[in-house]
Nucleic acid binder design. Structure first.
Lengths: 215, 215
DNA sequence: GTCTATAGCTCGATAGAC
DNA sequence: GTCTATCGAGCTATAGAC
């Protein structure tokens, strides 16, 4: 009775989502992230995870059908958290450019404080791992909301037309992930306020406005 | 008699660098890169490498003392090639901004056409692998030359003062690696002219000029 | 849902013959 | 500088008792 794999048995009458089960799963994923922080994102194994949980490896297969399913679950939880950070960041901000700036900054800060998840989400460091469509869904939502706010910014004259096009997203993503990637690769230990790259994150939005200057 | 490891025995009278030996080493590294392309940068193993070379794993230890030494050799060769690409790119260009643009574009193109080496050089995808100082040396040279050209650009009034500061390098690196990282993570198969990110690489330098506009 | 036992594989690396 | 043989370890995953 596996509920975490990509295929779930429709119509099963087994209890799938009890609070108890949910919190156990969370604890397992917490440990998995700790291990990835220790030995690298690609270094997670069922044996190591079991050892960290003080259980035997076969017991893990009651929760996850394979080690890649664990990766997928960490990935999915990371995407949900990143989306939540984005939404929390723009909460209370007026729609448009201000919301974009606040939201992007919030996701950048989330990435910096969650380097393991960020590597898993934004690079491809694990051979053989392809995130499931369900795990990717929050990312699609985030992009849709971002694009909506960019459209608002354009219609309010805060950005030039085209800022909300596919091209504009490419520019914004390059600027954003440029800072995040450089931080993760070169000074992952540094805090947001201390990192050479993160410290100047504000330039990301400044330069994006420079790329799409309002009339 | 290992010559590839980080420690070399000074004063040995054995032939260290015959052309024959050199070309064998190149062939081994070529295969290593092929394997990394297949199974991921972190998926290189001595066993797989030996299999690809149609030799037995113990034979490999005559050339490399460990699998991490192979990683280091691929890394070192990549850094040398990247530096060569940079220098070839700015050859014949006038010193200053034009040279910076040409050189950066050339290294970006090198990275896109050598995704395996680029991942190894610019991310940290292999648990336990730390490049040796010798392998890093070409990167330091490149940065020094880049900084020199930025200084020239400033003194010629092509960029605002500060473009050649540590801060300016941070901005330029973020812009540059933003495009490269997004390309490698999202559309590594796409050619330079076809990729959504690489196609607009020209914006990198445009935006850098926007960040440090001449008076 | 935990365990023991185990199959079957791959791995890094070494010893030592040729 | 190639090989065979081998050690000791790690790994994924399954079978089946409790």
């Amino acid at each position: 009775m596996i509920i975490v794999g990509s295929v779930t048995t429709a119509g099963s009458r087994s209890p799938r989502r009890t609070p108890r089960r949910e919190s156990t799963l969370e604890a397992i994923l917490d440990r998995a992230v700790e291990i990835m922080a220790d030995v690298g994102v690609a270094g997670l194994t069922m044996t190591r995870l079991a050892r960290a949980l003080s259980i035997q490896p076969p017991s893990l297969y009651k929760w996850f059908p394979s080690v890649l399913a664990v990766h997928d679950a960490v990935f999915a939880r990371g995407q949900r958290a990143n989306l939540a950070a984005w939404r929390a960041g723009l909460e209370g901000r007026p729609a448009g450019l201000e919301a974009v700036v606040a939201g992007m900054t919030a996701t950048a800060q989330w990435a910096v404080t969650h380097p393991v998840e960020a590597q898993l989400l934004f690079w491809r460091p694990v051979p053989g791992f392809r995130p499931s469509a369900a795990a990717m869904a929050p990312a699609d939502e985030l992009v849709a909301e971002l694009r909506e706010h960019l459209g608002t910014a354009v219609s309010r004259g805060q950005l030039a037309p085209g800022a909300d096009s596919a091209d504009g997203l490419v520019v914004l993503a390059s600027l954003h992930f440029g800072v995040v990637s450089q931080h993760l690769a070169n000074e992952p230990e540094a805090a947001w306020a201390d990192g050479a790259y993160t410290r100047s994150y504000g330039r990301v939005t400044e330069l994006f406005v420079a790329a799409y200057p309002p009339a």
